[in-house]
Design a protein around this nucleic acid. Sequence first.
DNA 1: CGTTGTAATACTCATAGAGAGCATAAGGGT
DNA 2: ACCCTTATGCTCTCTATGAGTATTACAACG
Lengths: 332, 332
Amino acid sequence: MNRNPKARERRNEAVTADLTAVVVAVTGGEPRVLTLDGTAGELERLPSGPFELRHRTLEQGLRSWVESQTRQTLGYVEQLYTFGDRDRHVPTAATGAARVLSIGYVALVREPRQSAAEGVAWRDWYRYFPWEDWRHGRPPVLDAIEGWLRAWVEGASGATERRQRAERVAVNFAIDGGTWNEDRVLERYELAYGAGLVAEAYADGAVVGQGPPRGVGGEPMAGDHRRILATAIARLRGKIKYRPVVFELLPPTFTLLQLQQTVEALAGLGLHKPNFRRLVEQQGLVEDTGAMTLGTGGRPARLVRFRREALLERPAPGLRVRATRAAGPRGS
Amino acid sequence: MNRNPKARERRNEAVTADLTAVVVAVTGGEPRVLTLDGTAGELERLPSGPFELRHRTLEQGLRSWVESQTRQTLGYVEQLYTFGDRDRHVPTAATGAARVLSIGYVALVREPRQSAAEGVAWRDWYRYFPWEDWRHGRPPVLDAIEGWLRAWVEGASGATERRQRAERVAVNFAIDGGTWNEDRVLERYELAYGAGLVAEAYADGAVVGQGPPRGVGGEPMAGDHRRILATAIARLRGKIKYRPVVFELLPPTFTLLQLQQTVEALAGLGLHKPNFRRLVEQQGLVEDTGAMTLGTGGRPARLVRFRREALLERPAPGLRVRATRAAGPRGS
DNA sequence: CGTTGTAATACTCATAGAGAGCATAAGGGT
DNA sequence: ACCCTTATGCTCTCTATGAGTATTACAACG
């Protein structure tokens, strides 16, 4: 736009790549994400740091930042998405006017160790997305959200835009005949952002005015970290259906109930117990260890382990979950 | 955290981001990708260019590069993956020793216009992945590939590594009891790379020695472009199952056979015609236009169009395809 | 030691969806 | 009229899935 050719040396076209990690664990049936406390009234954030020359690969850089910031070593790691919209970035002192890309990753770890380091916390991920937890039926926040979104649809500037907004809302939030699809976490977050439901939209200046009542939009995070978290949840919810990634979150041996609760935690859905076991068994995803659990308050359960051969037998070994009628959605 | 601030000026840590596009169309039932001819005996390449300050967003930058290099405007665009492994990049004069990230995108367009510009060509994507086309049954190249991979497995340095190699081969190439999964395009390419089946592995210096006979490893591309193409194919093959993306490749009205052939082209599978129609109909993905085709050599077909309401009714509106026994895989 | 609570596990039933194959219809061309 | 080609309709079977119900096995409590 207004640059002189001299100023266009290669390094001026260069950008900084920020590596950001969503580190996930499921403890006691609750999905958790590793966060850093915002210093001095600042927002909570994900572990992150710039990609530097000393890093052999992007993934190595990510592992190194997470370890140095949280003392947590990572197992399974998967790249999510690279964000680079200019609008979404408010320049800070650290970045100056330079261009920053955020490369998001999701990592899965077993149980978090004892207590995390100073300033590091494992937080329930539904803290940031209260509308995503349908394990005990439709979450009550959705009433307020629905109202807000309806008003947003009405506030469209023309008939065409109103129709588009109405369709987006219906498709993603299971309103007016739409069906709840647990995978659309990112689409819902983006919609919430555009509709001014989440605090980040105001912080970025994308939306002006008065936000919704406290609690409705979920807890905000620094920068675009909540967007990256949404991407991670969406990816995981989709992936458990055709790849056996859940097992990365479980100890080497576990019970079928633990497995089910882990899936439920990720998917945010309640599942039918007998059918879930049947699915797992017939897919051949687990095998018996011979051992049993003791003293869990009920009948002892078999301890099973992941069966690697399932990878060979099934083209898409995963857990195609669908909610029970009671605990789940289907139709608004 | 523990770094000398002085030694770490920001621009020293900066990288260049290359935007690379896989532009896909299906013409006459064949899947095509937009490529640039390699100048002077160089390899074929995908349209690409660096992310610059003038670009408002990554996607804008990509669209702008593709248009300027090929005169093709893009419709549907989706980000794929960001590649940044040091090992995979041989520094060129242009990049110097600097760090380069490649951000891959896939774009879908209707039919390519008349003839493409000078040096630009639409090429069958199976040119680069001959083993991925199972539309007429198991492709014959797989015999040679299987042999090569078996030798690679045997060439492992220890028992553990041999077992790992054998499992990867079985899972991805439907050998020894594995099942062919059309979605694993990238995994197969990575395996082929590691096993020295593709020319890029030698160019990068990742593998040394003698490659397989001509034709077995598919046509190579510049840099990591073939890897990006593999990622694109994999993404599309997965996505048609739960999102109605095929329609981005078809004209506004089309016949069910055109739809089927488009899906077959992408998935690389032959499908059972009656069952495919039943699937499409019952999913409510299309609606009648009233018009019919003429003079196609057989009985005239109904012309249909995509039905947007399907987005609302189905949680995952797509075409879960599975090969027929004749034209397809299942078990090696 | 029986009762109660909590899980684990086993079974049944009905139905929707997928895989396969066959039959018929409606054009064009010879 | 006959053949070739593609479109479209229908049947049959089996598996997978959603929803319930019943039974078993431990722990804790009185």
